[in-house]
Every structure is written in structure tokens, then in C-alpha cells.
């Protein structure tokens, strides 16, 4: 069985890296050692004796450094829990449970193409660092240039960085799917190694990415979200409609799925 721990993790760093968006670094040695790209952690915010907010909050692992024993998350303030997190200072500790879920399956014989929209870049940085040396590309998209996150970090991964913004304020004007379409066409005609797509972002974007990949018959993995209570496969609350029958559970069978496992019409 996978190694999972509930750790008392000290906050080492809290840095605003975009609009309402923060990078938080924890000292969490065991989690940093076992974490795989695409996995997530659950953070407890109600203290050790309190009950509010009751549920832990799930976050993708943005980076893990086993040498330093650190784990990073990239998060946006969207509600009570994340607002509370943004007010915490280094030195304080939180209960962090992880690493959880099934991450990306790495296909080393293929050319990696990473596609991230908005906060979807969070799990992709960890993945990009794992893929170092294999070549490939990363396509990052946002509504406007101000919302592009962690570009400098992605530049250092050695992958070709392509950017798309809806208002054209940086990179190509348009959506990541346009850039992806061109890239897959190019890889299809010029490279011996077929592409493998790894993606994370808002559901409509993932659906569109899955559509493009289907056209080119390219394997596509997506990291998806659902409201969670336990993150451990206990409550069956994190269900998403499966393509074939019934539901898949994001915390246990995911959060990374092959795009053909999901029923995109029902989302």
C-alpha cells in the first residue's frame, strides 16, 4: 500500500505569486519523499481541537524536494479556508495528510506535452521537473498576462514554454487548445516519438483538451477536482460520472484520469 502520513507540517514560506494566489512551502519530509507528480495533500484548518471549518482542503503538490524535505502548494483564495490560509505566517504549523491519490503515469517513450490553465499549473510544475531531460513542451494559458503563474519556474525546467492569453496580452491570443492543436499537428508530422498530453485546469478547458487529443488519437491524462471530505476513499463523496458505467472517485482512482475514463457530457 502507498505510504501516506498525517504530519504536523511547519510553514516555511508564504509568498504572493499572482492575484490572490500564493505559494506555500511546508516542511514535510516523509511526504516530500513519497510524493509523485499529480498527487495531492489534504490540509486541516480547524486546529487540533476546533471543528470549523470542519473538512480538510485538498491541494495538488506543486513541488516536492526530498533533499530539503519540503512540499509546495500553489493556491488561490476562493473562500473561507483559503482566506484563512493566506493569513498564516511562516513558523506556524498545519496538519497535512498525504501524499494522496493516483498521480500521472509517465510515458518516457513519448514526447510530453503539458497543458495548464489558470491554477491548473499547480501539479504541472512538479511533473515538468520530473520529466527533465526528455524534451517536450508546456503550454500555459490564462485570461490575461497578469494571471499567468510561475512562468520563471517553468522556464527552468528545460521544456519549451508556450503561452496563450485570451486577451493577447502575452503569447498567442486565444486558448491553449489552439496552441495544442498546432503542436500536435507538428509532432505528428515531424517527430518519431508520438506525444503524450498531461493536463490540468478548469473543467471546460480539460474537456476541450480531451477533444483535441481525441482528434489526433493522442493519449491524454487530466487532473480533475471534486468536492472532497476525506481524500482517502472512505466516504465516496468525490464522485464524477464515468464514461462507461457508474462513477469514478477523484481521491482514490484519481485525481489524474485518462480522458476517456470520464463522461465529459455529464459535467
Amino acid at each position: 500500500m502507498a505510504v501516506r502520513h498525517d504530519m504536523n507540517a511547519r510553514i516555511l514560506l508564504q509568498e504572493e505569486v499572482g492575484p490572490d494566489t500564493f505559494l506555500m512551502r511546508f516542511e514535510a519530509t516523509v511526504i516530500s519523499e513519497y510524493a509523485r507528480p499529480g498527487q495531492f495533500i489534504m490540509i486541516r484548518l480547524c486546529g487540533y481541537e476546533g471543528h470549523d471549518p470542519l473538512l480538510r482542503r485538498p491541494f495538488s503538490i506543486h513541488a516536492a524536494d526530498p533533499d530539503k524535505g519540503t512540499v509546495d502548494i500553489l493556491y488561490r483564495v476562493v473562500g473561507r479556508g483559503t482566506r484563512q490560509m493566506s493569513g498564516l505566517a511562516p513558523g506556524m504549523a498545519l496538519k497535512v495528510l498525504g501524499p494522496l491519490g493516483r498521480g500521472f503515469s509517465l510515458h518516457e517513450e513519448r514526447t510530453p506535452v503539458l497543458v495548464g490553465g489558470g491554477l491548473g499549473v499547480a501539479p504541472l510544475l512538479f511533473l515538468a521537473r520530473h520529466l527533465k531531460g526528455q524534451g517536450g513542451s508546456v503550454i500555459l494559458g490564462a485570461v490575461t498576462s497578469r494571471q499567468l503563474l510561475r512562468l520563471d519556474a517553468f522556464e527552468n525546467t528545460g521544456l519549451d514554454l508556450l503561452v496563450a492569453t485570451e486577451d493577447g496580452s502575452a503569447g498567442v491570443r486565444g486558448l491553449v487548445t489552439g496552441v495544442l492543436d498546432n503542436l500536435l499537428k507538428d509532432i505528428g508530422s515531424h517527430h518519431a516519438r508520438p506525444a503524450a498530453v498531461y493536463s490540468c485546469g478548469p473543467m471546460p478547458m480539460l474537456k476541450a483538451v480531451a477533444g483535441v487529443c481525441m482528434e489526433y488519437a493522442i493519449e491524454c491524462q487530466v487532473s480533475i477536482e471534486a468536492v472532497m471530505a476525506c481524500g482517502l476513499g472512505l466516504c465516496l463523496g468525490c464522485a464524477v460520472k464515468a464514461r462507461h458505467d457508474g462513477y469514478v472517485h477523484v481521491c482514490r482512482e484519481g485525481p489524474v484520469f485518462y480522458s476517456d475514463q470520464i463522461d465529459w457530457e455529464q459535467l
Binding site: 470549523d52 471549518p53 468536492v227
Partner: peptide, 14 residues
């Protein structure tokens, strides 16, 4: 197979 999502919502201490 259970109910369609969302299946969970947080409430005060619940």
C-alpha cells in the same frame, strides 16, 4: 451507483 454529484457540502461544524 449512487447519486449524481455534488454529493457533499460543508456546513458550520457539520
Amino acid at each position: 451507483e449512487g447519486n449524481p454529484p455534488p454529493r457533499l457540502a460543508e456546513t458550520p461544524c457539520g
